[in-house]
């Protein structure tokens, strides 16, 4: 691909008609980059029936064009058909940059796509900028967040990036924005389909997703036993947030792995992170220290968590957490 490549693409991550928040965040960010460089923002929507997705909303959130690719094999995310179709679209339209949300499907697709297109990919970026000469300049954490690397792709196009959830503000939809919907031509395209999806199971039961929650309440070793996690859950619910856990609590079998925050678990950056009975090992900090506000509740005044906490309470979590739950319920009722 050549330097003539133009426009910034955002992949629409959707399921059951619902568009992922990180897609909207990416659209807002792409809008900013495109405005600074006189380019268009294209929302790229792959589906078996695109009618389930609100394209007006994609336009209101920053897209100039919604590029729709419909095919029966695009009924759910799978690596093979998505890679084939996106590759075809990229070769047909030659975008300059392509931003994909760092969801479980985005993190699977992007590296596969980068290898097929032989282009550069910056993964799990926390910020993206546009440079007149270099194009997309990506900032991504390495070494568990202890290093921020600036990654560039000088020659290859499109420049790929996956964007970490909640790294950019969600745009206010502007319904006065106009855009067009363009249908991609997939006729004659051979689409591979080697892996079959037998079942998709939601274990969260409609709970707020950990990576998307504005408030995360996590429990650690100090919680003591599995039953006590009910206190953590109650506080998370009162905050309309999500429940997290430290590695110690997960390894002890108190909480499922899906809740683990830290180096070998999930990375979160909510508005408020409340750490209860968590000492604050470096591996845990790697997963939460970019939170806006950190609250630490721990009986050990020397716990390292207090070194990163915006507000610290030295005390017994079994006393503090229920009081806090009640107070928040009262104040937000």
């Amino acid at each position: 691909m050549t330097q003539e490549a133009k426009n910034i693409w955002v992949l629409v991550d959707h399921r059951g008609g619902k568009v992922a928040n990180v897609t909207l965040e990416a659209l807002g960010l792409a809008r900013k980059l495109a405005d600074a460089s006189s380019q268009e923002v294209w929302a790229v929507l792959l589906a078996d029936d695109a009618g389930s997705v609100d394209t007006e909303r994609l336009i209101a959130c920053g897209a100039d064009v919604v590029l729709v690719a419909e095919h029966p094999k695009l009924d759910a995310y799978r690596d093979d058909p998505y890679t084939d179709v996106v590759t075809h679209l990229v070769k047909s339209y030659e975008p300059a940059a392509f931003i994909i949300g760092a969801t479980s499907s985005g993190k699977s697709l992007a590296p596969r796509l980068a290898a097929r297109l032989r282009t550069g990919l910056a993964s799990e970026c926390v910020d993206l900028e546009w440079d007149g000469e270099k194009g997309l300049v990506a900032v991504r954490p390495m070494y568990g967040g202890n290093v921020l690397a600036t990654v560039e792709t000088p020659e290859a196009r499109p420049q790929l990036a996956t964007l970490r959830m909640k790294s950019a503000p969600r745009p206010e939809p502007d319904t006065s924005r106009t855009g067009r919907v363009e249908k991609a031509d997939l006729s004659g395209l051979e689409i591979t389909d080697r892996v079959k999806l037998l079942e998709a199971v939601e274990t969260g039961g409609g709970e707020v997703k950990l990576e998307e929650a504005d408030i995360v309440v996590s429990g650690g070793r100090g919680v003591g036993k599995p039953e006590n996690f009910a206190l953590i859950k109650a506080l998370a619910d009162a905050c309309r947030g999500a429940m997290g856990a430290s590695r110690a609590a997960v390894d002890a079998g108190w909480v499922p792995y899906a809740h683990q925050v830290g180096q070998t678990g999930k990375t979160v950056s909510p508005k408020v992170y409340i750490a209860c009975g968590i000492s604050g090992a470096i591996q845990h900090l790697a997963g939460m220290k970019s939170s806006d506000i950190i609250v630490a509740i721990n009986k050990n005044p020397d716990a390292p968590i207090f070194k990163v906490a915006t507000y610290g309470i030295v005390g017994d979590l079994f006393e503090i957490v229920p009081l806090l739950t009640e107070e928040i319920k009262k104040e937000t009722a």
Binding site: G120, G145, N146, T150, V151, I313, I320, L323
Partner: peptide
């Protein structure tokens, strides 16, 4: 290698903030 790492930097520093004192009820409030 299509990518280059143009720069590495430490993340913005994060320092310990405020310890909230008082009785548990006061701390929570």
């Amino acid at each position: 290698s299509p990518t280059v790492v143009a720069k590495v930097a430490p993340p913005p520093p994060r320092s310990g903030g405020e310890i909230i004192e008082g009785t548990p009820e006061e701390q929570v409030k």
